[in-house]
Amino acid sequence: MGLLKRVAEALMITVLVILSMGFLTAAAEGVHLSRHFLSYALHRTGQYLRFSVDIFKNQKGWVEVIHEGNSVMYIPHPSPHQIFHMLVGTSPQMAILNTLFLLSVTMVLVFTVGGYWGLKAGYQGGRWDGVLAVLAPMFSAIPGWFWGIFLMWALWWKLSIVPLSYIDYVHMVEGTGKPTPFTYLYALTTPTLTLTFANVAVYAYNVRNLVRNELHEEYFLADVLKGLPDKRIMRKALRTVLPPFLTFTSYNFLNLMMNGMAVEVMFNVPGIG
């Protein structure tokens, strides 16, 4: 019963969120509040939903032909899929894939580098910890896009080792040959590094704090007294701090996604942003 109630509540919230976003969109289109607003906004929400589903259907639009006297007028009516393609420059499936790919590669880098750095700083302290203690507040303070501009300056303007615009680079490769997975990966270098730069110190600091808390636990002391090698103790500490770290990650995912949208706009990545 408890589970059913929770599912029903989650469904209700989802429906309400969709409805409220639909109503807001209708209001943003210029529909004024009146006694007809509710029914009109509801109708529009239905249309937005249908449009959102239809953009995934690879349908072709149609052309309306109007004959008037000796002249003929052609009015194109593109399908939702074509409208999306015209506006974003790629299919909706690819747009979602692009965003997911960008975020996944970023998360892998952040987890690997941040996890190792945080573990080392938390367990061994010293220089690793000192650098992290200075960088973490700085990195969490500076907005993600700022790193984008910095990397743009360093890697594109000064060194010319990465492409600036994702879509332009992919189109250029498509014009001269067949793009490989490496093409897309290379085109995403700067956006990925931007998001990684913006997040890695913050994530590492979180791991460091969690590991520091674990150092006071009895099992940890027992492991040290048993004379276990450092690497084994660190592996164990990592296993213990993983669940709270994943909770932190899930809380921060929306934040990462919002920053990801801005980074997509900056580097012309046709994704959700």
Partner: peptide, 16 residues
């Protein structure tokens, strides 16, 4: 870019 970015950074740094 720099004035906005640095000011945001300073403001955020102090609040953090």
């Amino acid at each position: 870019i720099l004035p906005v970015g640095i000011s945001l950074g300073i403001l955020a740094f102090s609040f953090i």
